[in-house]
Amino acid sequence: MLNLGYACERYRLLFCKFCLYPNSELLHIVFKAVIKHICYNFASFISVCDEWTEWGPCIGGCDTTGTQTRTCEIGGLEGNEENQECDTDACVCDEWPEWGPCIGDCDTSGTQTRTCESGGLVGNEDSRQCDTDACVCDEWTAWGSCIGECELPGTQTRTCESGGLEGNEDSRSCDTGDCVCDEWADWGDCIALCDDFGERERRCTSGDLLGYYDSEDCEGDPCGR
């Protein structure tokens, strides 16, 4: 195969050798024309690549005809690419990871998946049916506080932390306890006619009865005062 760079260099050296001789004007013109003819006029269709990279990977679906590419590194075609057909890998997976968790409601058929890590099926997913956990809870949280009005049935809940019921809540009735006031305001004035009995009130400022009023009988002032 013709190395264009090598040929041009040889003709250039030969031309310069003749330039040293006297009365060589005619030779000068002839060799100049020869060099121009070889090194320029034919460059477009004599271009070759002196060194190619290795062929790249075979790109295409598994078990089909793919394409691989290489690039010219040195020569007249430097930077140009060349393609050729190739046989892709078989449609098999060389390495599968462990199966993922079984996804689905408890006590039913679930699904678990894995993704091929190498081979003709790299990146593809495989799936299979699996048996989910039984509808039981292996560990519950503690019961929460009893929610509801005092002296009436309330509700408290807990959450499953592990097992087939993980994330589910359980609830039950509970006793809210007596209605108590933790702190009362002072008694108000007694509202009554003189020498008669009336009523006074106080307001709960803290506890189950917050905002409620308590009352008691009281005696009015004597008449004539």
Rank of each mutant, 00 (worst) to 15 (best):
C174M: 02
S118F: 02
G119D: 07
Q156M: 07
G79F: 03
L13P: 08
V92A: 11
L152R: 15
C160M: 10
I74Y: 08
T111W: 05
E82I: 04
D50Y: 02
C130A: 02
S145H: 09
E201D: 12
E54G: 02
F31N: 13
C62I: 00
A134C: 04
R12Q: 14
W187G: 10
D208S: 01
L193M: 11
D189S: 03
D133S: 08
C72G: 09
G56M: 09
L121I: 06
V122L: 05
E117F: 00
D175F: 00
H28V: 13
D182I: 00
G66S: 09
R12Y: 12
G154S: 04
S127Y: 13
E183T: 05
I46H: 03
I59K: 10
L26Q: 15
C102W: 05
C102A: 03
L152I: 10
L165N: 11
R128M: 15
G188F: 02
S24Y: 08
A7L: 14
R202M: 09
G224P: 00
G76L: 01
L20P: 04
R70I: 07
G79M: 09
G224V: 00
W52P: 11
A185T: 12
L152V: 13
G148Y: 08
C58V: 04
A33E: 15
F18W: 14
D214K: 00
C194H: 00
W55P: 13
E169W: 03
F42D: 13
I191G: 02
C179I: 02
A192P: 08
P57H: 05
E81V: 07
G167A: 07
Y213E: 15
G76Y: 00
A142W: 10
G198N: 01
I29A: 14
V122T: 10
G5K: 02
C62R: 01
N3Y: 02
E166M: 12
L209H: 04
E201S: 06
G75E: 13
E85V: 09
C19D: 15
D133A: 06
G60I: 01
C181K: 03
E51S: 03
G177N: 11
N3D: 15
L13H: 13
Y213Q: 14
E125T: 08
S44E: 14
S145Y: 07
E201I: 05
C116N: 07
D89N: 12
T64A: 06
L20Y: 04
H37K: 13
K32A: 15
Q68A: 01
W140R: 05
N41I: 10
C93I: 01
C91L: 10
I103H: 06
S171P: 10
T141D: 13
Q68R: 14
V180N: 14
D221C: 00
G61D: 15
L2Y: 08
I38K: 05
N3G: 07
C181N: 09
L165E: 14
F42K: 04
G61K: 12
G163K: 03
D50L: 11
W52G: 08
T205C: 02
G110D: 04
W55M: 10
